[in-house]
Nucleic acid binder design. Structure first.
Length: 269
DNA sequence: ATGCTAACCTGCGCGC
DNA sequence: TGCGCGCAGGTTAGCA
């Protein structure tokens, strides 16, 4: 479900209900997520959330005692609901606040996680992350330098969180289409000039998707339960065999690193 | 260091 | 209707 725009949409949605609120109870119904939900998460009880923010695809709840690290995996969502709303199937974790609201994690596939750390910057999941794609440090020279001698294809390269965070399977295909780059091209063979186009495309696609409230393919909903609308603007993702919006040739679907890639072999060289 | 694969799960749509 | 198969928005561990 969630790539960077969906996580950003989620964080913005929950923040007004969670920031500066005191946690009165943490309930874990199913601790078997990607990693077990740690018992130390209970240290959150009694804490007041200082802020809610996003790093990569992690939603972070910062408190004086430590930070909650939440990842939504493939199928997770975070919702704000009233305390008397009964949990449903796959509602694994609740964080209840003294304002009567509950932050509730639902994740059918359980690829997500809820972790607790006292030193976020040293956490293994956070430590080695690349730059934020919407930040000023994510530039063409950065990507160009990082990619020299790399033999992996460009699509897999930009989906590598050690290179740049937040570019998932949808927006990788969309960005490469926008920049006219064939996803099979080796990262190390791409010129600085073409990386200029790619960096611009990544920033543009992600920003537009955030503006649209994310992409809802199947089940993404924001903190209020509403879908996103970016799927209406997808150029290639999920459009196998349909005509390219530019040249009318059929969009191709291939597999790279065990993931589907969509592209136009005419417009992307 | 880099690149590739399997693995972790549930649910849904499709062909038969 | 039911069953088996393939596929799905992520990311890490482990191995060559």
């Amino acid at each position: 479900m969630p790539e960077l725009p969906e996580v950003e949409t989620t964080c913005r949605g929950i923040s007004p209900h969670v920031s500066h609120q005191k946690v009165i109870k943490v309930t874990v119904r199913q601790p078997k997520l990607r990693w077990p939900v740690p018992i130390e998460l209970q240290q959150l009880e009694g804490q007041t959330i200082k802020r809610v923010y996003r790093r990569a695809k992690y939603c972070l709840l910062e408190s004086p005692a430590g930070t909650v690290i939440i990842h939504l995996g493939m199928s997770g969502n975070l919702r704000i609901c009233d305390r008397d709303i009964e949990p449903e199937k796959h509602d694994h974790v609740d964080i209840q606040f003294d304002n009567g609201k509950i932050l509730r994690l639902q994740d059918p596939r359980r690829f997500g996680c809820v972790l607790w750390t006292q030193k976020l910057s040293q956490h293994p999941l956070i430590r080695d992350l690349g730059p934020e794609p919407l930040s000023e440090v994510f530039t063409a020279p950065f990507l160009y330098k990082k990619s020299r001698s790399r033999k992996v294809n460009i699509k897999t390269f930009i989906m590598n969180a050690k290179v740049v965070v937040g570019v998932g399977n949808i927006y990788a295909s969309e960005s490469l289409f926008m920049s006219g780059i064939n996803p099979k091209t080796l990262a190390g063979k791409i010129s600085l000039k073409r990386y200029e186009k790619l960096v611009f495309a990544i920033k543009t696609v992600l920003s537009l998707a955030i503006d649209q409230g994310g992409t809802t393919l199947k089940d993404f909903v924001n903190a209020s339960g509403q879908p996103g609308y970016f799927q209406q603007k997808l150029s290639v993702y999920g459009r196998a065999d349909q005509p390219c919006l530019t040249c009318k040739q059929p969009i191709r679907q291939i597999t790279q690193a065990q993931r589907s890639t969509y592209y136009c072999s005419t417009c992307q060289k």
